[in-house]
Simulated assay, not measured.
Amino acid sequence: MPMMPTQYLLLCLADHQLTSQESERHGGSRDRYVRCLNIGGRWAVHGTRQSPLLVWHTVQAGEAQAAAERSAKARGRPVVVLSRSDSGWVEGREIQVFTPAFEPALLGHTAQSEARARRLRTEVDKLEAFCLVVRQASAARNHAEFAEISRAAGKALHAKFGGGSIVSASAWLTGRKGQEALQSVLTGEVELGGPLSMQEIAETIALAQEAQRLQQQAENSTSRQ
Rank of each mutant, 00 (worst) to 15 (best):
R30Q: 12
R30M: 13
D31L: 14
D31S: 13
R32G: 09
Y33G: 03
Y33N: 10
C36Y: 13
C36G: 00
L37H: 05
I39D: 02
I39T: 15
G40H: 14
G41S: 06
G41M: 07
G41N: 06
R42P: 02
W43T: 06
A44T: 05
A44K: 03
V45N: 11
V45P: 01
H46F: 15
H46T: 10
T48A: 08
T48M: 06
T48R: 03
T48W: 01
R49K: 14
Q50R: 15
S51F: 14
P52G: 05
L53P: 01
L53Y: 02
L53C: 05
L54V: 10
V55T: 14
W56K: 08
H57E: 15
V59K: 12
V59G: 05
V59N: 13
A61E: 15
A61R: 15
E63Y: 03
E63I: 10
E63L: 14
Q65W: 08
Q65V: 11
A66W: 03
A66I: 09
A67D: 09
R70Y: 03
S71H: 06
A72T: 04
A72I: 08
A72P: 05
K73G: 07
A74W: 06
R75C: 07
V79I: 15
V80I: 14
V80T: 15
V80Y: 03
L82H: 13
L82C: 12
S83K: 14
R84E: 11
S85F: 11
D86F: 01
D86E: 11
D86P: 04
G88P: 00
G88R: 04
W89L: 03
W89R: 01
W89D: 06
E91C: 09
G92P: 09
G92T: 06
G92D: 07
R93P: 00
E94M: 11
I95F: 04
I95D: 01
Q96W: 10
Q96S: 10
F98C: 06
T99H: 07
T99D: 03
A101K: 13
A101P: 00
A101L: 13
F102P: 00
F102N: 03
F102V: 02
